[in-house]
């Protein structure tokens, strides 16, 4: 299978898995925003998700495989690129590369670390800040758990920082998808680049608003 070995083939696999994860980021943001409805919103949403049973596990395995494919190729590609440039220039004057495009491997690895922390906190629920309980309707009280954790300034700040890292990754990643798939030309590139940035900003604001609103007391129990 030459798609697994050639430069462009692996790039296409990275682009597709990356973009499918962006779709997950969209759905996750929509789901999270049910917290603004209050305890009834997010607790009901969480219960619906958990009632899907085995589907949840299939979904988790699929997401895990996306992370694995995207991550393994990302690391491999970075190592190969470093090997292709054995000696650095004494002076390097980049004109098009950005903070985002230059640090994809680091922002990617930081996001991976954040995902591990995020799952341990709100999915496995083993971090010390977690308050477990059920609401009046006997559902797992996600609302209380999240609000209690984000009342901690350090945790809220960590989430906002992680979303800035995600923004840096997607600022380059979203537009990159279209170029790699070949769905691009000189007329579409500037538009796609701007749209990619706008979508990345929407994620940054949308996700960050939850810890910020809770910490500032706008959203409370």
């Amino acid at each position: 299978m030459q798609i697994l070995t050639t430069s462009i083939g692996r790039k296409i696999l990275m682009a597709i898995t990356g973009q499918l994860m962006v779709l997950f980021v969209v759905v996750h943001l929509l789901g999270n925003s049910s917290i603004f409805v209050g305890a009834d919103g997010i607790n009901a949403y969480a219960k619906h998700l958990h009632d899907l049973g085995p589907l949840v596990w299939i979904f988790r395995l699929v997401m895990l495989s996306f992370i694995a494919i995207h991550g393994i190729y990302g690391i491999q590609l970075t190592l190969e690129n470093n090997a292709a440039t054995p000696q650095a220039y004494a002076v390097k004057n980049l004109s098009k590369a950005t903070l985002s495009s230059n640090n994809m491997i680091w922002t990617g690895l930081l996001i991976l670390l954040f995902i591990v922390y995020h799952l341990l906190q709100f999915t496995v629920r083993v971090t010390p800040d977690i308050v477990q309980g059920v609401d009046a309707l006997g559902r797992y009280d996600v609302f209380n758990m999240v609000v209690t954790s984000f009342k901690n300034g350090g945790i809220a700040a960590l989430y906002v920082a992680a979303m800035i890292v995600l923004f840096l990754h997607l600022n380059h990643g979203i537009q990159s998808f279209f170029q790699t798939m070949g769905w691009n030309n000189d007329k579409t590139l500037p538009v796609i680049s701007k749209l990619g940035k706008v979508v990345a900003v929407v994620f940054l604001i949308g996700y960050s608003s939850i810890p910020v609103f809770i910490l500032t007391g706008i959203l409370s129990k």
Binding site: E80, A84, T85
Partner: peptide, 9 residues
Amino acid sequence: FGNCTNHYE
């Protein structure tokens, strides 16, 4: 040669 990461340099 290395792999393209769409820097556009």
